[in-house]
């Protein structure tokens, strides 16, 4: 795989956006996209955790699991590392950056079960990225995820008072808006293609 990390980075934001083309992280995407400010907070937290865990999981996979032939244990190991990382980050932030903790604190526990974080670690293994590509991929995916959730929250705030057909309020309309956003993002797909 001789793809430059920069291309992986751009691709993970636009052409293979975590939400809009891989459907990862949908649960919190639907649930936490009512307000722009909370969406932005969650987006920052996800980006941070994604970057960190993709590097850690890369290192553990290639230097611990592969040499000892424990590849089949990767699911358990990844999820434990993610949970441990989130816990650690929460403690560090609470201790040294109380303002930031006030801002992001409630989102951190949510991230452990965010499929996007776990999915990115799995994708780096499946696509056989090297360390730089993995870092770029994790960071880019986080930015892409933030971009999508903030955009969605903006749209949802605008239509908050709009009259909607009965039964379409809430999840229904949110999914349809997401569909239209995904349609728009397909427009980027000509730029780069990385699998």
């Amino acid at each position: 795989m001789e793809v430059s990390p920069f291309i992986v980075f751009v691709a993970s934001i636009f052409t293979s956006n975590m939400i809009l083309s891989n459907f990862l992280g949908m649960c919190s995407f639907i649930a936490v996209s009512k307000e722009k400010s909370t969406a932005w907070g969650l987006g920052q937290a996800v980006t941070f955790v994604l970057t960190g865990t993709s590097v850690i999981n890369y290192l553990v996979y290639h230097y611990v699991l592969v040499p000892y032939g424990l590849v089949y244990l990767r699911y358990i190991v990844f999820i434990l590392l993610i949970a441990a990382f989130v816990q650690l980050v929460e403690m560090v932030i609470e201790r040294y950056f109380p303002v930031l903790h006030l801002h992001l604190g409630i989102f951190l526990p949510l991230i452990t079960v965010n499929c996007a974080v776990f999915g990115v670690s799995l994708f780096t293994v499946i696509r056989q990225y090297n360390l730089f590509q993995a870092t770029a991929f994790g960071f880019g995916s986080g930015i892409g995820w933030t971009l999508a959730i903030v955009a969605l929250a903006g749209i949802r705030q605008k239509i908050k008072n709009a009259p909607l057909p009965k039964g379409l309020e809430g999840a229904g309309i949110t999914l349809i808006i997401t569909g239209i956003m995904a349609l728009a993002f397909i427009g980027f797909s000509g730029i780069i293609h990385v699998q």
């Binding site: 379409l168 999840a171 999914l175 569909g179 397909i186």
Partner: peptide, 14 residues
Amino acid sequence: MPPGAFFVLGLLIW
């Protein structure tokens, strides 16, 4: 493609 999935699920929930 991905948008189709969003539309179908949205309509089904409706």
